[in-house]
Amino acid sequence: MSTAITVKNISKTFREDDGTTTAALRNISLSIKTGEFFVILGPSGSGKSTLLRIMSELETSDKGSVTWNSVHPNGCAFVFQQFALLPWLTVFENVSLGLLSMSLSNAEITKRVTNRLRLLGLQKFAKHYPRELSGGMKQRVGFARALVINPKVLFLDEPFSELDTFTAEALRKELLELWKKEKFTVIMVTHNVDEAIELADRVTVLTTRPGTVEAILPIGLNRPRSMRSPEVFDLHDKITNLVKP
């Protein structure tokens, strides 16, 4: 399997105007394989979001490097914890955002957006505004907007943490289906151990302030995974012991 992204010795410290500093990440090295479902797990303040934002080039690191191998950073998409839908745009317009810079014809954009809305069960909501949707529907729009560009790499920053458990469960299942079918690479941040076990090929556990790599564990279970099997319970205990808030 080839490598999609290599992260080498990344460090990041935030400096406030009043002189206080926060060491968010120290010496992070990872290598993400093409097509894998990679999960970054850690307690609040372990720098998970910062790491994801450095990998997706939304933020720069102080030290170290991020290398994109088989793919180009332009081919990446991002799903945000709080959806980040633009409130003045309709669902259709929000989903089309990533296509606007691609010099496609209007007809092509309409076709791709419509198709993506249908795949995520949003076709009836195309003309709605985000404020008219439930949290679960908003995040579906977030996923539609990300997947409509056929990303090579999909970054997810706690995409399910604002949703109720039932909605989150359903959306995780759909994400797995789409991932299996469309074969993009997923790099997901979460603080939920079960979520990591349910979804990941590999999980990296981060420590807090500064975030460092505590461990990287492969989850060698077949999919679909039953969350009530003894192996899952063992894994749960093992990972929970690694997480130090």
Binding site: R53, S56, L58, N74, C76, A77, F78, F80, Q81, Q82, A84, L85, L86, L97, G98, L100, S101, R145, I149
Partner: peptide
Amino acid sequence: RKDWQEAITIYHLR
């Protein structure tokens, strides 16, 4: 909101 601006950056709106 910061994440709106990040969405703009990620999806290369120019």
